[in-house]
Design a protein around this nucleic acid. Structure first.
Lengths: 192, 192
DNA sequence: GTCTATACGAGGATAGAC
DNA sequence: GTCTATCCTCGTATAGAC
């Protein structure tokens, strides 16, 4: 009998499954990806996957959980009212968050908007993004001002997609160029 | 025997099918949409659909054909070398093109990037977009300059998505705000 | 934790009647 | 042009052995 809290039957299959699923969902789409494909890449069977997740949707939710937490952490850390420095810091934080999660996550969200939207965690992500946009906007901003913020944030995604899928420039360089452009969009073309 | 060139068996089913499919593919995704759903909305059966299209992919291709032609027309009409006025005209042309095809088409392309990418017409669209970006870029522009162009073009898409899905502002207003922002991104924040 | 076997439905696609 | 009927494959999910 063990009492160290470590179960000898423990494996890292669940974590590995999340990684494999992220990659496949991003590249082939959530609906188009079957549990068989995921299981195959893991070297186990479909049935074994059901030990770790109750449904396919649960796999998708597991992938998105960490991403969501990252966004929420950014918003919580942001100081209000927003100073110019605070705005830059928040923007950098978002860029780092995107870089950390990588292209697969960006593509996953873009390509499976509908499916994610229908999940409980989809509503949470939407709400978190709204908060982030609100935090980056000037006090009492209208929809047009928030459009600038949305565009600024999308710059990092577009840079990543351009580098890898459009094959037009290397990722590090484009990511570096994206930041000043994002800041410029945010500030409305006016110098600080 | 008729000789007026009009076949009495002709219907508008094919065109209607393209419209219905566009709407469904955009809202639910290509893979997630079944031929049964499309047929149901048309008031016919799956089998009848196969009279008009040989495969499901052919429906998707039919949807994208007109969109692609519109992009190519823009590029052909663009004068080179690019004057400031020509640049503005081309940008306006793209905005009009996007408006004409509507949100469904934007969502279709975003949400089904992988599936479209795998089709012959996907390569054509990619190539057309490259030409458009090239046409909007200064002579001898590098990847970083082209990133600005990509961002400018995405402004119209993001405006449309923001209005309808994010529900943050009305479409006409956001579209109107998107144009000057796009121009500003294109020009690098420097006044004309 | 993972397996084999299987239930059950839905998918795309075709054949042939009308 | 559209239908009914059918084929075959693949999907998610479960039962029960090891």
């Amino acid at each position: 009998m063990r009492s160290d809290g470590v179960d000898s039957r423990r494996t890292d299959t669940r974590e590995r499954a999340v990684g494999v699923a992220l990659s496949l969902f991003a590249q082939r789409g959530y609906t188009a990806t079957s549990l068989r494909e995921i299981a195959e890449q893991l070297g186990i069977t479909k049935a074994a996957l059901y030990f770790h997740f109750r449904t396919k949707e649960e796999i998708l939710t597991a992938i998105l959980r960490g991403y969501l937490d990252g966004i929420n952490a950014l918003v919580v850390d942001a100081a209000r009212p927003l100073t110019a420095d605070g705005q830059e810091a928040l923007l950098r934080g978002f860029a780092a968050h995107q870089e950390r999660w990588g292209l697969d996550l960006v593509m996953l969200v873009r390509q499976n908007y509908t499916e994610i939207h229908g999940l409980p965690i989809g509503a949470e992500i939407k709400s978190a993004m709204r908060s982030l946009i609100e935090a980056l906007s000037p006090e009492g901003a209208g929809p047009e001002q928030r459009l600038r913020v949305r565009l600024a944030l999308s710059a990092f995604q577009i840079a990543a997609v351009t580098a890898s899928i459009e094959d037009d420039g290397d990722e590090a360089t484009l990511r570096a160029s994206a930041y000043p452009i994002a800041l410029e969009i945010l500030r409305g073309g006016k110098p600080a």
